[in-house]
Design a protein around this nucleic acid. Structure first.
Lengths: 268, 268
DNA sequence: CGCGATTGATACCCTCGGGGTATGGACCTC
DNA sequence: GAGGTCCATACCCCGAGGGTATCAATCGCG
């Protein structure tokens, strides 16, 4: 059931040489061993990867896919090992996630100045996936916009952001500098939460095509803006609250320091 | 040298149970085997992962890092295997990369309508990393903005995009609806290519802080826009050329069809 | 303080899988 | 059809992974 990385490297060699003999030579093993390992690999995966004749070796569809995946897998693994060694040598690391449209660079820079030894990973979040990277450990700390699932998270509110209507450029209200909620009465609102599978791009397409209008945080909407859409702030709508978040059981010094520094920077 | 995924899963079990006996039970192996495997793993990696006493098991810094990396590695591997199986069952896949600010959703939707069985992966590109995903196979096709390294790529020009000056909001030219190159005489230009390591966010910080101005494609600059920056089109500057690109040796039907459909959509 | 319980480490054995060499069998070239 | 090329098969060996039995260290408790 477990993918074997050695066999994966073997497969990559064969896929790239399209020749068992030369691939084996390149891997410093004997050719029959390679043949056997590749067969075993195909058996483990449950599908054929290569079509072999005595005169040629070609990739099947699954083989081509695996060849592409291999690159991703092997670079991921190598990066993982490298980061573990760094951690062992004392290099600290902090993964900061941020929602689209929110800017963390100033806070990150302030933190980096105070902690020159800490490597920062910036993780841009998607519209509908604000909480999972914090919950599953991909990020140590996040800069998010409510609402999101904050169970198990410690959150620190740092600001507010106005709502904006997202309209087709040809919409009668598109030219207005600002709107009131009442102006949007009777408009068809495409609910952001309606279909989580749908991408934000798709929703914007629908708006541009005239199927309805959207409402969202101004900065985030601007990050995805396009010439055929207009953004108009809705002045009397409840603003979005932005906040810093981290797992609440986290007593990591880096995280604590980042939260205090970022809170100062983002509120100031 | 090769990370062993079996040992990695073993390690994850111990890291999460903080207990060899229960972890072993959970893995359906005997406890002494687990102890030995973890020791071997530490020896292979060349660093300690756990601090054990007879009464407790704790993670070292390297161990905590590996625990985080493990999630990434294992999900990457599982996704890879799943996609290979899909490919084997005949599910085709097309990875479409696009530069920041360029919109592919319309073309992707047109292609998806014509090829309902093809799964589309959208790969957003970074400012300074436009070519590598096409060259290393992470993407089958790309929607890019010149200049980029097109060696080995077949490219199809599909449009042009005006240059825009990126100015601090307080800059005297910030209020103008458009500019001529001559207006920017004497301004300090922060060259986009100067430091590839520097993130675009950092460059925008520098501009906002008044260290100089930038010039970039209008749509891309807008995608990163912020309240303290102004974007003003430079009307007489050479526009950026946008084009579709794919490895030139690629005779894949999906890629060919995507290129023809996308060319039609993007030019129309 | 001494005894049992708990828990990770060690010792020792067995099996299986990855590595090797020798060789077969298919297919192309001439 | 003879020879060369190339992948597959047959067979052997050794080391790594798995198991059981047991030790050693620590904690709890009377």
């Amino acid at each position: 059931m477990d993918l074997d990385l050695r066999k994966l490297r073997y497969f990559v060699a064969v896929a790239e040489h399209r020749h068992f003999g030369r691939a084996a030579e390149h891997l410093f093993i004997a050719q029959p061993v390679l043949s056997r390992q590749i067969r075993a690999f195909e058996r483990e995966l449950g599908c054929a990867l290569l079509t072999r004749t005595t005169r040629s070796v070609e990739l099947t569809a699954a083989g081509r896919q695996l060849h592409e995946e291999a690159r991703r897998v092997l670079t991921t693994v190598d990066a993982a090992v490298r980061r573990v060694h760094e951690a062992d040598r004392g290099v600290a690391r902090l993964a900061v996630a941020f929602a689209p449209g929110l800017h963390v660079s100033e806070a990150v820079r302030a933190f980096a100045d105070a902690h020159p030894g800490v490597e920062i990973d910036l993780i841009p979040l998607r519209w509908y996936d604000q909480h999972s990277p914090l919950h599953d450990g991909r990020a140590h700390v996040g800069f998010l916009r409510r609402p999101f699932d904050d169970t198990g998270l410690r959150t620190i509110p740092v600001g507010h952001e106005p709502r904006a209507a997202i309209l087709p450029a040809a919409h009668p209200l598109a030219g207005r500098p600002s709107l009131l909620s009442a102006d949007l009465e009777g408009e068809k609102l495409l609910d952001a939460q309606q279909r989580r599978a749908a991408s934000i791009e798709e929703k914007l397409e629908l708006i541009a095509a005239g199927y309805g209008i959207g409402v969202g945080p101004l900065s985030a909407a601007r990050a995805y803006s396009r010439p055929d859409l207009a953004l108009v702030p809705v002045t009397d709508a409840e603003p979005y609250e932005t906040c810093l978040a981290a797992p609440e059981d986290n007593r990591d010094e880096r995280v604590r320091d980042f939260l205090t520094i970022a809170t100062k920077v983002l509120r100031g």
